Computed example of a mutant assay.
Amino acid sequence: MAKTLGPVKRKFSPWTDAGQVPFIRFENVTKRFGPFTAVDNLTLNIYEREFFSLLGPSGCGKTTLMRMLAGFEEPTEGRILLQGQDLAGVPPYRRPTNMMFQSYALFPHMSVEKNIAFGLEQDNLPKGEVTARVEEMLKLVKLDSFAKRKPNQLSGGQRQRVALARSLAKRPKVLLLDEPLGALDRKLREETQFELMDIQTELGLTFLIVTHDQEEAMTVSDRIAVMDKGEIVQVATPAEIYEAPNSRYVADFIGDINIVEGRLQCRGEQSAVIGTDFTAVIDQPCDLADGASVAFAIRPEKVHISTEPPAETVTNAVYGEVWDIAYLGDFSVFIIKREDGLIFRAAQANVSRLVDRPITFGDMVWLSWTADAGLLLTR
């Protein structure tokens, strides 16, 4: 089994096993709206019981991809397979999928329990089974005591749970979530993310979520597909996406990062990025010829900041002025500007309750990092 970079939230990685058959497969899928190509010759495998995120900016094609899986749109070219079955021509109500919309789309005149029961009653399930299923869903989303209330009597978070319960009541094989937490405040959104993960694990379903919120995707996902202009740029676990982005686009899109352009110099098992009065040595072998245009990338939290020069054994260091500081509670971000205009960010955990900052605006400081902290980007 392939080694996974960084921490994983559970021992679950079917994508590393060549013998595993994908649960969902997008096969050379293209979707055009007139002259505009929303999804461009895309191939993607999603596995059973996976919590999978489609992440990207507005207009990148992620919602179109989800809508094609749900049956609301048909591919212009290519196939979409679910458990080996081609979904072409299968209407949405015949597919073993259900979608939870960003707006929740609850019926305002119905109680919570009636909203959850609606789809089951439309399927003509026996009354006893409907009642049992509704009770099960209410317990699952912790809304037992709110069964008789109307949506306008609930908070945003409670309405979100009702929409989730209604989506799960029909026991779909795949739950599709379209920006499901966008209307919630930050604290509630963070709490709900963990609740979604617990529910998905408990039910053993496959979840596919569309989001532009990088933190949300990093929190809930087993894997993430980063999209841009209708194409998938990288598919990997959250840790791999963050620690080993495969391009400047992914590195810059996920989290905060310093990126410096330069020329490649091969040094055996190491590489160096040579810029204007700047050299960064990286523990990464060369895969391009000397002189190639490349970039050096490093996350701010991997950069050490100090008013004292680093030890002579430190390979990578720059000197500059503290231009700005962002205090974010658990950590602070320092914006450092060199004389040549090159700007670096360094993040420092606030591990003690300091009244006076040891480093403040206008200070001249040293930034340093180890050779294994940075990354060489070749595209």
Rank of each mutant, 00 (worst) to 15 (best):
Ala2Val: 08
Val8Phe: 10
Val8Asn: 09
Lys9Val: 13
Arg10Ala: 08
Arg10Asn: 05
Phe12Arg: 06
Gly19His: 00
Phe23Met: 07
Asn28His: 15
Lys31Glu: 04
Arg32Gly: 05
Phe36Asp: 07
Phe36Leu: 15
Thr37Asp: 03
Asp40Thr: 10
Thr43Pro: 09
Leu44Thr: 03
Ile46Ser: 01
Arg49Ser: 14
Glu50Val: 05
Phe51Leu: 06
Pro57Glu: 04
Leu65Glu: 01
Leu65Lys: 03
Arg67Thr: 11
Arg67Val: 02
Leu69Met: 08
Ala70Met: 02
Pro75Ser: 04
Pro75Arg: 09
Gly84Arg: 08
Ala88Ser: 14
Gly89Thr: 08
Val90Ile: 13
Pro91Arg: 12
Tyr93Lys: 14
Arg95Phe: 07
Pro96Lys: 13
Gln102Tyr: 00
Ala105Cys: 13
Phe107Arg: 02
Glu121Ile: 10
Gln122Cys: 02
Lys127Met: 01
Glu129Gln: 15
Val134Ser: 06
Met137Ser: 05
Leu138Arg: 02
Lys139Ser: 14
Lys142Arg: 15
Ser145Arg: 13
Ser145Asp: 11
Pro151Met: 08
Gly157Val: 08
Gln160Leu: 07
Val162Glu: 02
Ser167Arg: 10
Lys170Leu: 14
Arg171Ser: 15
Lys173Met: 09
Leu177His: 04
Asp178Ser: 10
Leu181Pro: 04
Leu181Arg: 00
Ala183Gly: 03
Lys187Thr: 15
Leu188Lys: 01
Arg189Asp: 02
Gln193Ile: 02
Phe194Gly: 00
Met197Tyr: 08
Gln200Lys: 06
Phe207Lys: 03
Leu208His: 07
Ile209Val: 12
Ile209Gln: 09
Val210Arg: 01
Asp213Glu: 00
Glu215Gln: 14
Ala217Cys: 08
Met227His: 05
Glu231Gln: 14
Ala239Ile: 11
Asn246Arg: 07
Val250Phe: 02
Val250Gly: 04
Phe253Ala: 01
Cys266Arg: 14
Ala272His: 10
Thr276Ser: 12
Ala280Glu: 02
Asp283Pro: 11
Cys286Asp: 04
Ala295Arg: 15
Ala295Tyr: 14
Ala297Thr: 06
Ile298Val: 13
Arg299Glu: 08
His304Gln: 10
Ile305Gln: 00
Ser306Thr: 10
Thr313Trp: 07
Thr315Pro: 00
Asp324Met: 09
Ile325Met: 03
Ala326Gly: 05
Ala326Trp: 11
Tyr327Cys: 02
Gly329Arg: 09
Gly329Ala: 06
Val333Glu: 12
Ile335Asp: 03
Lys337Pro: 13
Gly341Glu: 13
Gly341Cys: 13
Gly341Met: 09
Phe344Asp: 06
Gln348Glu: 09
Asn350Trp: 07
Val355Ser: 14
Arg357Asn: 14
Asp363Gly: 06
Trp366Tyr: 15
Ser368Lys: 05
Arg379Asp: 07
